[in-house]
Structures are given as C-alpha cells and as structure tokens.
Simulated scan of single mutants.
Amino acid sequence: MIDLEEIRIVLVAPSHPGNIGAAARAMKTMGLSRLYLVSPESYPHAEATARASGADDVLARALVCQDLDEALRGVTLVLGTSARARSLEWPTIPPRQAAERINAESGGEAAIVFGRERSGLTNSELERCHYRVHIPANPEYSSLNLAAAVQLLCYELALAAEAGPVDDPTPAISEEDPREAYAEQIEVERFYVHLEAALAEIEFLDRENPRQLMRRLKRLFNRTRLLRTEVNLLRGILTAAQRQAKLARGG
C-alpha cells in the first residue's frame, strides 16, 4: 500500500524560489511532506515562504542536496518527469500509472524527480530513473509550471493512497529477507560505474566512441528492477572478468 510519508518529491536545480514554496503548498494539500532540493539557485528565500501559504512545515523539513545521487540515497523506485522526448526513449508512463506503480510496490522508498524550469532533466539524470513520467498536454502549448506539475502528481498519489493496496506485478522474491529486496538506486549507480569500467577493460566499450551503449544497458537493467543480491552477483562477474582481462594482458 502506498505510504505518502515514504515518497520524496525531488526538485532538481529550481531557479525560482517562488516555485519551491508553491511546490511545498501543492504537496501539503495532498498529504505529502518530504521535499528534496538539489542545488537550488536561491533557497532559503522569503518568496518561497510567501508562496508556501502556510506549508512552512514542509519547507522547514526540506533537505538541500548537492547532487541527485544524494537526494536519491535510500530510494528503490525513481520516476522522472519530462515533457521532452529523447533520441533513445525511456519507459514512459502517465501520472496515474506512475501513482499506481508506486502503490503496487511493497517496501522501499520512492522518489518523483522534477527537472529545471527551463530545460527539465538531463539525459544523465533521467537515466537514474526507472520510468519517465509524461503529463499529456496540448501539443501546441505543452509548457507546465513546475508547481502545477508537482500538484498534478501529488493529486494522483493521494488518489492512489485512498484507493488502497494493489498487487505488485513485479514483487521482490522475499519481502522478509532484506538481501532479496530491490537494490537502492545508489547501489545500481555504483554497478553502472563498475560495468562501464569493466566493458572498457575487456575492450567491448570504446570510451572514445561509446555511442549509446551505456544508455541502452541502463535502460535494460532499470526495466528489470534489480534486487540487491543480483547487483552483488553481477558485480562479482564483472570483477572476475576484469581479473581475467588483466591476466590475459600479462598483468
């Protein structure tokens, strides 16, 4: 069942403090309270407090993070909002399905990530997300204010919480064994770093001309929802491959 206290709203590099306050207000009206700010341009700020209109407690609890990895520490499910299509598209779902996806997942914390007001999320930031959340809008005028987007997603989350629990179509193998829980996003990111290094060492990846290999591999693994034991297993395989590559080179 969805627990609104386990959902983080993450704003990446917000440039307008008023949007931070308005987002806090949007969250509180729907029962959410965990706000994370990644490198905000101006915060704390009087305009944020004014636009919060009584959601001062949400602002007081807000955590300011240096980067997205810090904001996602401890999270097992990440959804990134983006209106912009990519050359290599990410698994995309609408807001209601995003809320249902969070509602279906048992255990672990979830985060919904919102990008910059002008440019949204970078490809690298979106690659940290299991799903891209796209808000359908008028194709001739699809611009949506940051706080309005937060309000819409929080509304869908509140509806899902009220609807009650649903079955998880991709449950972890054993909820009682923490080793069989979904891997935290920071563990997955460390695996990706290890994977890229190992592929370069065995000369499968050309770092001078990587094309979209790592993006495709990240999309594949994000889609499978790796468990903690699976991450450890894969990294063990990579370590063994690196060892053999070193021996083959006479190292």
Rank of each mutant, 00 (worst) to 15 (best):
F191T: 01
I186F: 02
A99E: 04
L121V: 07
L226K: 06
S174V: 01
S142D: 08
S42R: 15
A85T: 01
R190N: 07
A245V: 05
T170Q: 12
R190A: 14
R219L: 08
T224H: 01
L217Y: 04
P95Q: 11
Y43N: 11
R8E: 08
G236V: 06
P178K: 10
A240Q: 14
A161P: 00
C65P: 09
I20A: 05
E180I: 02
P94D: 04
E125G: 05
I135Y: 01
V113Y: 05
G250F: 06
S42F: 07
L37R: 10
V193K: 02
E203L: 12
R235I: 02
V113N: 12
A99L: 05
R128G: 03
M30W: 07
G21M: 05
A111H: 06
V64H: 02
K246P: 02
R215G: 12
Y155W: 13
S82I: 11
S42K: 14
D56K: 02
V75M: 07
A149H: 05
L88F: 04
M27C: 10
A161T: 11
A111V: 13
R8W: 07
L11V: 13
G120M: 07
Q66H: 13
N123R: 12
G250A: 07
A248S: 08
A198C: 11
A148D: 05
E127G: 15
D167H: 09
T81F: 03
R34H: 10
A26T: 07
R34Y: 01
L126Y: 03
C154Y: 01
L88M: 09
R190I: 03
L79K: 00
Q97E: 14
L227A: 10
E189D: 14
M27G: 11
E117C: 13
Q185E: 05
C65A: 13
E203H: 15
E127I: 02
P95W: 01
V133G: 01
I102M: 15
H130Q: 03
R207V: 12
E125I: 02
I20D: 00
E176W: 04
S53G: 03
R8F: 10
L4N: 07
T29C: 08
R225V: 09
G80I: 06
E41A: 15
N209F: 09
L157P: 00
A183P: 02
S39F: 01
R219W: 01
S53Y: 03
G18Y: 00
C154K: 09
S142C: 09
G54M: 06
S119Q: 11
I173S: 13
R223D: 06
E70Y: 02
A26Y: 04
H134A: 10
A148W: 04
V113S: 10
H16R: 13
T170N: 12
A62T: 12
Y192V: 14
G31M: 12
I102C: 09
E105W: 08
H134M: 09
T92H: 00
E162R: 15
T170P: 00
P169T: 14
L126K: 07
R61S: 13
H45W: 03
Y192D: 03
T76F: 06
R86M: 03
A99N: 10
I20Q: 04
G108H: 12
E187K: 15
L195V: 08
A181H: 15
P136D: 07
K218T: 05
Y182F: 15
E180N: 13
Q212Y: 10
I237F: 11
E203Q: 15
R61A: 15
F204Q: 09
R116Q: 14
L59V: 00
T49A: 04
